[in-house]
Design a protein around this nucleic acid. Sequence first.
DNA 1: TGACAACTACTGGTGAACCCGTAGAATCAA
DNA 2: TTGATTCTACGGGTTCACCAGTAGTTGTCA
Lengths: 135, 135
Amino acid sequence: MADFDPTDRELEALKVLWERGEATVREVCDAVSQTGEPLAYTTVLSLFQVMEQKGLVEHRKQGKAYVYRPLVERKNTFRKLAGGFLDRVFDGAVDEYLVHALEGKKLSASELDQLEAMIAKARGKQSDKNKWGQQ
Amino acid sequence: MADFDPTDRELEALKVLWERGEATVREVCDAVSQTGEPLAYTTVLSLFQVMEQKGLVEHRKQGKAYVYRPLVERKNTFRKLAGGFLDRVFDGAVDEYLVHALEGKKLSASELDQLEAMIAKARGKQSDKNKWGQQ
DNA sequence: TGACAACTACTGGTGAACCCGTAGAATCAA
DNA sequence: TTGATTCTACGGGTTCACCAGTAGTTGTCA
């Protein structure tokens, strides 16, 4: 329902929350500063305050600090992001999207297996839906 | 070499140029206004002026109007966009990216065929690289 | 209870994307 | 040549993401 559209930084923060379930500003600040550019504590705090307004996270008080928890599912968010990107850049053309996505990347055998399994599954749905060959 | 990173509007304009080879501001303005929100002529002009500064397009004079031509390849741009999105959102995890990309979308039989062909091709490269079955 | 450390609230600044209007230049037709 | 038309150059305004500092608050511990 909530139309969430996290920015890059917000997504970084959400990744930490998804990984840990919940986290304080301090924890997220340390986490993102380890993997990328170090950020000021207040910067991360501001980020969460904006995210809370957007309905992406909520907080509860623990001691004197706030503990933040994600309100959006990782899976949903990723799907929407992927879908949005697909529509925006490739006008919904899945095949071209995949060609370009895969071209630069080397896929492992297991990834290829998984991909094939996905195709098989899709074929199943396909034949169910299009039994009569209509559009 | 040129590190191009078109924004959404820039990409819209580029799509028109790729389709036609080249186009005047007027043509692009009409084209994007047909498919989406109508934009003022000067808005599109400004867009091109910025894009030219970024090295995304160049122009030549024809009559009193400028004709713009893309300086970046469609294919390259799409690949970079797809790769960037993959890294930014999914930290480079191709399989998860694909799962989410495909989940919401219905694929046609021909798209599935094409996808399988891509996988077969990838397996060819794969077996060359991983003959000893390591990791 | 008082001081200190760590936290939050609030405010502001910067840069980029986006949008458009006005003024002036160029072209063309009468 | 002159007027109308259509273009470009330029400047400005708005919004948003992002970053961070300051001031005030809160909890803790001696």
